[in-house]
């Protein structure tokens, strides 16, 4: 039963992804590898769509993956799956708010979880780089124009005062135009 499977996979994602929407990415790669519901390249497209549309990124990614896997029903089920653990966990924490905030164990756990989450997102980023820059998996297939575009974007989003605080959608749309003008996929 695909819906149950989807719900369960996304329930686990919602339960273990700490640190916001991007933190669900490593789990989605894991699902892609084990289930084969979607490809790594589709995941990269999905991140772009999720960043450029209204709604929290984690929710958008779950909806998108659910849709690719099992249509509109899949979109609803995957989204409900990813939010159910949140609802349960937050309702419990609400009841113990003060004690939760002061607990040394909770602080300790998060001290370890935060760098781990960062490390997992880095690993997911490496997979996106592979899918984007090495279409056939060899260094020979690297397109220098893509590297140039990446360098320009890195500078614009980090170093140039005027552009670095612009919304990601600006850079995503700009990159789409550059891709079309240069014929990057060919």
């Amino acid at each position: 039963m695909i819906y149950l499977r989807l719900f369960w996979e996304f329930f686990q994602t919602g339960l273990f992804a700490v640190g916001g929407g991007m933190a669900t990415l490593p789990f989605l790669y894991d699902i892609s590898d084990r289930m084969g519901w979607f490809t790594h390249a589709q995941l990269a497209d999905m991140v772009a769509v999720s960043e450029s549309t209204p709604g929290p990124i984690g929710v958008n990614m779950a909806t998108y993956v659910g849709f690719l896997t099992a249509g509109v029903g899949g979109a609803v089920v995957a989204t409900l799956g990813v939010i159910t653990p949140s609802i349960i966990v937050i309702l419990i924490i609400f009841a113990f708010l003060q004690r939760f905030r002061d607990s040394a164990y909770v602080k300790g756990a998060f001290y370890g979880l935060r760098p781990a989450s960062t490390g997992m997102i880095l690993a997911a980023g490496v997979l996106v780089v592979k899918a984007s820059f090495l279409p056939d998996g060899t260094l020979a297939s690297v397109d220098w124009r893509m590297l140039a575009l990446a360098a320009v974007l890195a500078v614009l989003t980090n170093a140039v005062k005027k552009t670095k605080d612009l919304h990601p959608i600006v850079f995503i749309l700009g990159s789409a135009v550059v891709g079309m003008v240069l014929g990057l996929a060919g």
Partner: peptide, 21 residues
Amino acid sequence: DAFAGIRVCVCVLIFNAVWKL
């Protein structure tokens, strides 16, 4: 072609998120 460009941008955005976190 558009998505080939977009994927490059997604890579940069992910590494920016890693840097910030």
